[in-house]
Amino acid sequence: MARVHLETIRKIYPNGFEAVTPTSFDIPDGEFVVLVGPSGCGKSTLLRMIAGLEDITEGTLSIGDRVVNGVDPADRDIAMVFQNYALYPHMTVRRNIAYGLQNRKIDKATIEQKVQEAATMLNLTEYLDRKPAQLSGGQRQRVAMGRAIVRDPALFLFDEPLSNLDAKLRNQMRIEIKALQRRLGVTSIYVTHDQVEAMTMADRIIVMNGGKVEQIGTPHEVYHNPASTFVASFMGAPPMNLLEARFEDGMVRINGGTPVMPAPAARTGNVTLGIRPEDVRIDDAGDIPFHVDLVEELGAHRLLHGQLGDQTFSIHAMKDEPAPQGATRLSLIPDNICLFDSETGKRI
């Protein structure tokens, strides 16, 4: 178990493409960190550099107290769970799990004991003598987990491990992985493009875009205080509503003049206003006109999609709240409004 430290880590491919711009962060011992972002954002490259599968162009990577830049993957004291599991197809489940240990000259009895423990933990005991091809997707996923667990590594790396599973199994495995990590207390880095996985599993989330870190924070911080319009629109389903607004006469005004909150000291010009769908109320006395085009019924709540002036807008309504069609009026909860620079997209 160990702290992980990245110091201005950068990746430039031989063709000149900069996949990861200089990035620094620190992961304390035992923390579960999720790297999230759209495909091509550099999150997998970053993970693979930490694993040692990809060369680090610049910067320093340490795991524990050791700088591991030039260290072979096998000597980094890590374990990795791959997207397509990467099980050895010609080995039994037992050998798949034991293989890494056998190469570390650990005595047979210890290996057998650890394999049994892991198998019990993951409900794999009765499959130990099968080949991966004879297992279901969820079982293969568990074998991949088992292979990681038995090594007692300093660091777990997960590369989109759930993306090949169906939705139901994915939810179940999400909980299992999180619980397992809690139990073992091993520092973990988890890469995904799924913001729900990021929100539910992470102690801290690192949101990446275009090779850069957009924000680092707890799920709560990232969701409620996004650092940029990118984070605001990437996290949450439906995403945060973003409206074109202006600073005028000391107020933030939307929709060509309607004031919604006081402007921060002495600012003028354009601004982007962000508000989560659940921070909006249908309110006949409200002063913002809204036209509902479509209601999505989701059981416990509904989503109302429509037009606010000439911009699209969504509202979250609980099942006992009114869900009008057509023209209605809204009010926003001013405390929950986020303002972003309309040029840079950064939080004001």
Partner: peptide, 9 residues
């Protein structure tokens, strides 16, 4: 990825 897994193991 199988080869990469072996690289780690």
């Amino acid at each position: 990825s199988v080869r990469e897994a072996a690289l780690i193991d």
